[in-house]
Simulated assay, not measured.
Amino acid sequence: MTGFIETEEQQALRAAVAALAAKYSYRDYVLPRARKGEPLTELWDEAGALGFLGVNLPEEYGGGGAGMYELALVMEELAAQGAGLLLMVVSPAIVGTILTKYGTEAQKRKWLPGLADGSSKLVFGITEPDAGSNSHQITTTARRDGEDWILNGRKIFISGVDQADAVLIVSRTEDHKTGKLKPALFLVPVDAPGFHKTQQEMDIIEPDHQFTLFLDDVRLPADALVGAEDAAIAQLFAGLNPERIMGAAMAIGLGRYAIAQAVAYAKERQVWKSPIGAHQGISHPLAQVKIELELASLMQRKAAALYDAGDEFGAAEAANMAKYAAGEASIKALDQAVQTFGGSGLTADVGLASMLGAARISRIAPVSREMILNFVAQHSLGLPRSY
């Protein structure tokens, strides 16, 4: 991208992804599967076969050799058709990035080709019941036993474990139970002895499930360790900027979908002899949300461009701001779309109300609105830390 103009390749990628997503409409494909709790397997497989899922991964391992900008572009265009793929956030974006930067050659050759074509899925396990946003309080521990490692701990709100081959678990070595977090990252196969998952009951309509994980003396070989055992915090956060960028892209796409539905209805629905979209009570709120989505999109693209340019701090600031702006705009867009439809907006035929829970997630995960405000206050404004 040069300035605000995408390259011909990026424009072509947008068009190709949009064409794919149009085949898997929200009402006919995504929503019926989400209601049954079934993953979007057909869409995932086709997106992988077309090279969309691994567009950010190195070419030598089967990826597209592009960047986070392009992967976020894929996510946005899928979500703009109501077909966002949650596991894109964790598999190629978080885990794929960490493996690319810190994995051994053997780990890269084992996992990255599968992540690139979608035939393998790796998910990410960081959140704990008593840690939440405070990752320094992680209590999952790893201790050496000869050449092996033994993991013990518990994780919560881990997405897509039932679809995954392994989970990248964030732990800490036993001698770092207190003090600053020095994470040790391990690829844990989902069939490893002592690894147990329990599906969490969620009150939202989503095709992907959340899990609580229990690690009870899970024994892993030395080559399960990703990166250094006494890693700097940067090793962990290498995957978190991409997570925020992808979350923002998904929220922006969802907002685009909602507004497109509302605008189409506002052009057709007539009351008092004119389309309701002719009335400022309808048109102005939709125009306002359009502006806010575009502003969020600009910040998301800035974050991705900074990340791809290697500006870690600039990307962190922009990614947090993008995630905040996109979350707020997408919730507002969906709410306004429902309001535009009136009572019809709450019907199963329209399908917008079923998206309300998913949209609300963007204000909470992967980092809450309040923690983003803390970050901006401290790092962008230079105000004293409050926590």
Rank of each mutant, 00 (worst) to 15 (best):
I138M: 08
Q288Y: 06
M355N: 13
Y387S: 13
A116Y: 03
P384D: 13
G96F: 02
D165Q: 15
R154E: 14
D208E: 10
K36W: 06
A258W: 07
T141F: 09
E42A: 15
A260V: 01
S91T: 07
A329N: 10
I252M: 01
P242D: 06
L168Y: 06
L381G: 02
H279N: 09
A258P: 04
S380C: 10
R35A: 06
S274I: 14
E42F: 08
A222G: 06
K302C: 02
Y24I: 00
S91Q: 08
F237L: 12
L87P: 01
M321C: 03
E229L: 05
Q280A: 09
L151C: 06
Y324V: 00
V218H: 03
L373Q: 14
A184V: 04
A21L: 09
R256G: 13
L112N: 02
A260G: 13
T212W: 09
Y387E: 13
S25K: 11
G343I: 07
V367C: 06
P275G: 05
Y265P: 04
Q107K: 14
L73G: 06
P366C: 07
N134C: 05
M202E: 14
R172I: 03
Y61R: 01
R385T: 11
G194F: 04
T212A: 14
R144Q: 14
D217A: 14
M202G: 03
L57E: 01
L236E: 02
A266C: 05
V376Y: 09
A49F: 05
I259H: 09
I245E: 00
A19S: 15
Q235C: 03
L13F: 13
Q378G: 01
K177T: 13
R256T: 11
G114D: 10
A322D: 00
A49S: 15
F157K: 12
E294R: 12
M1C: 07
Q81W: 12
V30E: 03
A142Y: 11
G327D: 07
H279D: 11
L115T: 01
Y324R: 12
H176N: 11
A47K: 01
A353C: 05
E147Y: 00
F313L: 11
I205S: 06
M371N: 13
A353N: 13
A66T: 08
K177W: 08
E8P: 02
Q11L: 15
G82W: 09
T100D: 03
D145G: 05
A238M: 11
F214P: 00
Y24S: 00
S171T: 15
